[in-house]
Nucleic acid binder design. Structure first.
Length: 343
DNA sequence: AACTCCCGCAACCGCCTATCA
DNA sequence: GTGATAGGCGGTTGCGGGAGT
């Protein structure tokens, strides 16, 4: 039979989002909360399909997301999770709640894959092969990539022991390249407009409430995720929940729009850092490191240790979790992230 | 300075799953 | 139980910008 694409309708706009569209979408979601995407274009007048609205929100506008500048530890996590889970980007993203699956996917395809390939060709270790044509690790339960992965979608992966490999850090790459595209530059305008909108909104909070401005939200080319986005801290806190829920449950559970007081309380650092983190000691150690970005990632990752099953369909991953989240191993990961000379 | 090539990312497409009537 | 619909996910693509020549 086949369902017609939701974007088939005439008059549906495609292509890059404009700042105005972003504002409309954010405003609407601020008012009604995410979810019921079907009604978003209708109610907002956006000439976008519901899917496009959802993607735009989840991948770009959603507060609390961090974009670009993957640190070595994140790289390590992605690499290992990819080895363990395959191209289950959503599942992988659940362990890096500040990252979107799209972002992780892009980063894998554009950076990590190449790095691993390069590394392997250089070291001939063969522990990790990013290319499907030479999936040497597959026989050991590591699902590495693309085609093989696609042939067996949504199948729980058998976790395999972490392979011994080195991965490149982002130093020396183009990672720091400015993403000041036409759109990116316009997002600064969005930021300002949003700020103005928030000020005029009864729900809005003054920018003085911004927190973590300096640390984890430094990319000024993405104002939505940085301090200029007044809704970021609150929703970031709300999203920093055990095992990143799916968008629907994440917001529809009566918590769509953060109330004023709730908003404020959520902004307190204690609250953010104490949202039932089961192993605060781990977080503390991370905090002592002064690792700006790692800090929250770790916290959220630690949350997953609570034992609940990953909603995105990932296996229980107790081993994985243990390995990834173990404090001492975290250090090993960082060590493994040390650049080989070829980088 | 101009041109070409390469790279990264945002967004689209199509399929799958979950949910509901 | 079945079909319709919305949401979710992963793969792919096209565009814009930077690097290289």
């Amino acid at each position: 039979m086949g369902r017609p694409p939701c974007c088939d309708q005439v008059g549906i706009k495609k292509g890059p989002w404009t700042p105005e569209e972003d504002i409309i979408l954010v405003s609407y979601i601020q008012e009604h909360g995410p979810g019921n995407w079907r009604s978003v274009p209708t109610n907002t007048g956006l000439l976008r399909c519901s899917k496009s609205c959802r993607l735009r929100w989840t991948n770009y506008l959603r507060p609390g997301i961090k974009r670009g500048n993957f640190n070595p530890h994140e790289e390590g996590m992605i690499i290992h999770l990819q080895a363990l889970l395959g191209n289950k980007w959503a599942a992988i993203a659940s362990y890096l709640p500040q990252r979107t699956d799209n972002d992780i996917k892009n980063y894998w395809n554009t950076h990590l894959k190449k790095k691993l390939k390069k590394l392997q060709s250089g070291s001939a270790v063969g522990a990790m092969d990013p290319e499907p044509s030479s999936n040497t690790a597959n026989s050991q339960g590591c699902f590495n990539d693309d085609d093989e992965e696609r042939k067996s979608p949504r199948v729980a992966r058998k976790p395999s022991p972490p392979t011994s490999f080195s991965a490149a850090s982002s130093s020396g790459s183009k990672l720091a390249r400015s993403s000041s595209t036409t759109y990116a530059s316009s997002t600064e305008n969005i930021s300002r407009l949003l700020e103005g909108w928030m000020r005029s909104s009864p729900r809005s909070k003054p920018s003085s409430l911004k927190k973590n401005d300096d640390a984890s939200h430094r990319d000024s080319t993405h104002p939505i995720k940085n301090s200029n986005n007044p809704i970021t801290p609150a929703v970031a806190a709300s999203t920093a929940q055990p095992s990143r829920p799916k968008a629907k449950s994440e917001y529809e559970n009566g918590g769509d729009v953060v109330g004023h007081e709730e908003y404020e309380s959520m902004l307190s650092f204690e609250n953010v850092s104490n949202i039932s983190w089961p192993e605060k000691s781990c977080c503390d150690s991370i905090q002592r490191k002064g690792g700006e970005q790692e800090e929250e990632e770790e916290k959220v990752a630690v949350v997953d240790k609570g034992g609940q099953k990953d909603e995105s369909g990932a296996p229980p991953l107790t081993f994985l979790e243990k390995w990834l989240l173990d404090e001492t191993v975290a250090g090993q990961v960082e060590e493994m992230m040390e650049l080989p000379s070829i980088f």
